[in-house]
Design a protein around this nucleic acid. Sequence first.
DNA 1: GTGCGCCATTGATCGGCATCAAGCACGCGG
DNA 2: CCGCGTGCTTGATGCCGATCAATGGCGCAC
Lengths: 229, 229
Amino acid sequence: MTRPDDRLLAQLRKHYLFADLSDAQMAELRPHLDVRAFDAGETLFDQGDEAASFFMLHRGTIKLFRVSAGGQEKIMRLIQAGQSFAESVMFMGEPRYPVNAQGLKGGQLVSISASAYLRVMQASFASCRTVMARMTERIQSHWDEIEALTLQNTQYRIVHYLLGLVPTNEAASADLSLPTRKGVIASHLGVTPETFSRVLRLLQEDDVIRMQGAQVHIPNVAALRRYSA
Amino acid sequence: MTRPDDRLLAQLRKHYLFADLSDAQMAELRPHLDVRAFDAGETLFDQGDEAASFFMLHRGTIKLFRVSAGGQEKIMRLIQAGQSFAESVMFMGEPRYPVNAQGLKGGQLVSISASAYLRVMQASFASCRTVMARMTERIQSHWDEIEALTLQNTQYRIVHYLLGLVPTNEAASADLSLPTRKGVIASHLGVTPETFSRVLRLLQEDDVIRMQGAQVHIPNVAALRRYSA
DNA sequence: GTGCGCCATTGATCGGCATCAAGCACGCGG
DNA sequence: CCGCGTGCTTGATGCCGATCAATGGCGCAC
């Protein structure tokens, strides 16, 4: 049980979960926060585990995933530093994590007691509303993903994923680096590493992207965007 | 602009959106409710339309769907009488419907002003919490769907859909009728009508289901359940 | 430096599901 | 009763992406 220090607490205040809270509320919450380190490959929780807390990732990378009967895994979400996850356990009657969570890159994790946060939120309709807004965004993105999975082919999905990594939307060209190993991204997109590799090669042959390791250069973002039409 | 009569209002109170509201809150809300009839095939709203209200279906059936560039449609949700939808427009910065909605079977629809409901909810943390719990359930079901779409084949998905229609979970055998046209169900499951038909035939040939039109008989629910393992 | 292990790539093959194309059954209006 | 439309079924074919298998490249331990 390690409480967050003042520096980390200040960081937390920037996150949407805490931005709308008063100092008094924050103080009330503090004893129910816990900071811990984790390693790459470490299992944080398994699907079905009883859940008393949700999380906010401070450093490192985490994958949320499910495993089929056949053993293949689908990464539902990639958590990067600064993002929170599993907030929804707050609202479950019998709270259980709906996915597995495992470290991809070691880091530091803040866990937040669900009941404590719920208590604080009761006095803050603003936080309530913010949380709901975030959940709404999540629902939207799920619908987008479901649509993409059923209505579009893999090339479309991969191009779209790349476009989602472009920092600014206006720039004519873009340079970016893949946030993690390619196999992980492939699983997130619901394709095999082989297919992912092949599509990337195709895009290079058609001169819409250029890549070297995890570095991707998009000479013409608009051209790439047209590619998925 | 037709206000709901007292009978309908009493019905509404049974729905989770209104169950936790006091009489005073309900009275405040009443002028912001509107009842209208719609026909089969009638478009209720399109994806991207500006949204000021969300809905609760009183009678009839509605499909929520998206359309790909190629023109094929994927039904995201089938709304039956008693269900609410598009609640999430309440929490959007610039509210727009994220899907198309169209009547499948004519009926009656109650629309609820998002801003009015939000105002009322501000005074009722219980409602707040209930709404969030529902949104959480929705998120869960999306994850299940995404998992099914990426990790399981069509036969699994179809069998699972049928199992979801079984009224009670304990019964050894079950009789049920498909809630709508088969083509609609197929689109909901992300397969073509042809494939849907073929899989159903297969299941019949293997004697795990028997069917006649929209009527389905499952002689052994456990056997069907094993089928998707 | 050398060997090992993991990941990415490339090629060959296979299979599931979509697509295209007929038939078939039922309901409805004339 | 017939004709037509709509939805369901059934068959033939093709394609996309998975699978199986081999190779290549890079980092790391020793």
